[in-house]
Amino acid sequence: MTEVLYKLASYITGHAFVRHALIVTVLVALCASLLGVTLVLKRFSFIGDGLSHVAFGAAAVAAALNLTNNMLLVLPFTVMCAILLLRVGRHSKIKGDAALALCSVSALGIGYLIMNRFSVSSNVSGDVCSSLFGSTSILTLSAGDVWLCAALSFAVIAVFLLFYHKIFAVTFDEDFAVAAGVPAKTYNLILAVATAVVIVFAMRLVGALLVSALVVFPALSAMRVFKSFKSVTVCSVVVAVVCAVFGILFSIAAGTPVGSTIVAVDIAGFLVLGATGFIVRRFRPS
């Protein structure tokens, strides 16, 4: 045990890429869990998965166009889809989950088609696999990546703290919020943009298929035990950060893939809090 800890400590102090990975993981997990509470309650649990497929499709187009920086295409395109889903979704004829499935499947299908026909890389299935499941790219982050991620994370956290009460109102009961004079559309727009930004960056951490876990697990785990919006939000952030740190340290020590290890730890966290909630309800003096 001490040997493993010693090894981890030497990795963290000795290698900048391990520190970078840790910082980025904590920031992304924090942002994803902040927005996750609202997204789960708005019945958009699968938005992480859906939007990451959209981002995959956009990345495929960017690769076919030989863009050196594919973020220039991926981010605006994903933000656009998020706005369409979160803002228009509620009153459109194709409702939330169906619209999400439609976007996600189309982007995945067309993206793979384009990648297959126009890709310059010789290893198409390898590329697809790594962008869907996340590769070890989290361990190859540059200092610039870390700064960019930190800046965006702080922006997302600031937006959440500034508009916390409005986000609560718009999530709990949008019609009431509009009636009371809160510009709900604006806040939904802000939420959509923040969601898209977080998901595009979280994709690089755990890969497209596992982004949902970062959005959904901490929020659902927190809801097992806590019953007010504030306590659920705080608990969700704590759970997300603890699970992410554990997951990444474990994956470094044991040499397992980063993304799937974090998800495994998230599942464990969900089970622990689920059991806690059950015990608390069972034995609470009422």
Binding site: L41, H165, A169, F172, D173, F176, S228, K230
Partner: peptide
Amino acid sequence: ASQRDFPASVREIVRSGCLG
């Protein structure tokens, strides 16, 4: 329907009426 499983205290909900 969405209000039924929403984690929120009564105070949080009543206060949200003041947001306007």
